[in-house]
Design a protein around this nucleic acid. Structure first.
Lengths: 353, 353
DNA sequence: TTGAAAGCGCTACCAG
DNA sequence: CTGGTAGCGCTTTCAA
């Protein structure tokens, strides 16, 4: 009986494997493997015969077979809150680009800011035996995901998170400092009544850190420069909130109306500016807005009048490079705080007519 | 000698496998497999013992082993030009969400609008034996990727592409019609001199299709309504172009200056509006701008004065549902044209963050 | 320079 | 209801 695997029937039935290539080229599968992985150790003539067979059969190496055998899977897992936020999306673009250059496969998941889904997503990624992970967590402190990753001893890099503990790898801007600088700049422009617009703290540790910086700046201005600052105010907005008009009403109207809004993120800044206009306020003029994040590389929009900018796509690339170092054991986990660039004055924006 | 695999040493050395679980629970690996895949066929008592062993050992099923064995890998590949464009990013968010609900793993790649990279990325995806693909191609006509996919007989859905051939699955708005409607609306507002701002045709077939619709609308207005239209003008912009100020100068100044710009995409509309302001023009007022795309669900910004909108996140979800149908063989490939909603008047608005 | 063979972790078939 | 077993496609010794 003809061995079906080296016969002809499989041709239409299933995808060609190394066996078929080997049979076609008249060599063993070990040789085919060598041609794929270390062609230098095989005579040119043989290499060519095998390559010809591969081309003829349209052979495609099965990564799953390889992964099962090898220690490394050459894949990385990525977890972000949502791709609907351009900040995260561009960072993923950076990750993907860098991964592509290294021939790594990217497995993508999103949590929608839900810690429960974070855990599930990471679990799936681990089941896939990724070599490492890049994550943006809702809250990086006391996080079960981090405990899990550490206990499983798998390399990971936090992106945008700025955790308390210093033994985990993290790449971020200095959230508190960014907010501090923006607030200070706005105070320098004469603002005395300021509010911060931020996401709920439980779904974004960045929010809380930025709020801290905001308060600190007001406090310092009062204390050191004797500026007659109104107490810092906070407007917390839930993720997914689509319209800030009514939410911001208390802040934008009445005798205690603020003259400036410091926003925790670009998206909130855009939303806030829209809300300002809905209330008949001009931006700038009656009110100023400042935002953190800044979408710079490949630059989309920076619709803020005052912003702390760090190119997020580049941050993604850096995160992958960092992760690679960890995977290879060449680097130790550490917190990397990237400098932000403060840009004041009006920048481009669809928000202005 | 103690069999190392069931001994104790592996504990620190390697990850636990079904063997270890089986040994711990005092059953065979076949039973462990059943507990995972069809617990109903196993007595409750046994199930619990096995589950306990899994928990104790922190067992994690290895998807690569499973994939090697099974016909389906329960993974899908996604290819977009870039995640830096919110339109694609939100669509990926939709795909990821839907995939997550179905327990599918998403492999993400990006082409940066480069056909060469498209082919490489898809090739990698196929090496991973994904069950199907969702792709946004630079140009879906006469595309080697499509030929490859068809010859390999693997299910795929085009997203945003609107190919000539009718035997491939595609989900898109009607590009020509969108541009036609926007242009018509602007003509209705009194504009007689219009230009289209579009990406280079070779890196986006949508651009060309939208330009066709633009020209058609002007032609029809002239022919049927006798409107004294100036000839349609075209400003082609390379992907990644960040500043349209000088590029648009010829269109915005001089005696032949246009009064309106129809933009092929949201991103271009944003950039165009910015350029208009740089030239001292108010938007709207001296000039009007209209854009196609529209980021609606999860909506970021729709900074257009006149736009054709179709929620892109939902499009991603639909694409995955469509793909699932193809994979299961329940659906035939067909082109799905989603309706666009024409929104005129000023709408700058944010939404989620 | 090459090949035979032993698995990687898993599923599914078949026999008990 | 359970266990033994034959691979899935691949890499990697170890011999020849």
């Amino acid at each position: 009986m003809v061995c079906p695997v080296e016969g002809v029937l499989w041709f239409m039935t299933s995808k060609p494997t190394m066996r078929n290539v080997a049979a076609k080229a008249g060599v063993s599968i070990a040789t085919v493997s060598r041609v794929i992985n270390c062609p230098d150790e095989v005579p040119t003539e043989t290499v060519e015969r095998v390559r010809a067979a591969m081309a003829y059969l349209k052979y495609r190496p099965n990564m799953n077979g390889r992964r099962l055998k090898m220690a490394q899977t050459r894949s990385v897992g990525v977890l972000v809150p949502t791709m609907a936020n351009p900040v995260f999306a561009t960072s993923v673009q950076g990750i993907e680009q860098a991964a592509n250059e290294d021939g790594l496969t990217v497995l993508l998941t999103s949590s929608e800011y839900d810690p429960e889904r974070e855990l599930g997503a990471v679990s799936t990624l681990l089941n896939n035996r990724v070599d490492g992970l890049i994550l943006t967590l809702a809250n990086a402190d006391d996080n079960r995901v981090i405990d899990l990753l550490i206990s499983e001893n798998i390399p990971f890099v936090l992106l945008f998170n700025q955790p308390n503990r210093t033994d985990v790898a993290a790449i971020s801007v200095d959230n508190a400092k960014s907010a501090y600088d923006i607030t200070q700049a706005m105070i320098g422009q004469g603002h005395r009544k300021l509010a911060m617009v931020a996401g709920h703290f439980e779904s974004s540790d960045r929010s809380r850190q930025r709020y801290d910086g905001f308060c600190q700046a007001i406090d310092d201005a009062q204390r050191n420069d004797g500026a007659p600052m109104a107490a810092p105010r906070l407007c917390q907005v839930g993720f997914g909130e689509t319209d800030l008009e009514s939410i911001l009403e208390d802040f934008l109207t009445g005798p205690d109306a603020v003259t400036g809004l410091v926003c925790s993120t670009d998206m909130l800044a855009i939303a806030a500016m829209s809300a300002c206009r809905s209330h008949g306020l001009s931006v700038p003029g009656d009110v100023s807005v400042g935002g953190i994040d800044g979408i710079a590389v490949g630059g989309l929009i920076t619709p803020k009048l005052c912003s702390a900018v760090q190119p997020t796509q580049k941050m993604g690339q850096q995160a992958l490079a960092f992760l690679l170092g960890l995977i290879r054991g060449q680097t130790e986990p550490q917190s990397l705080l990237l400098p932000h660039q403060l840009s004041t004055g009006e920048s481009i924006g669809p928000a202005r007519h």
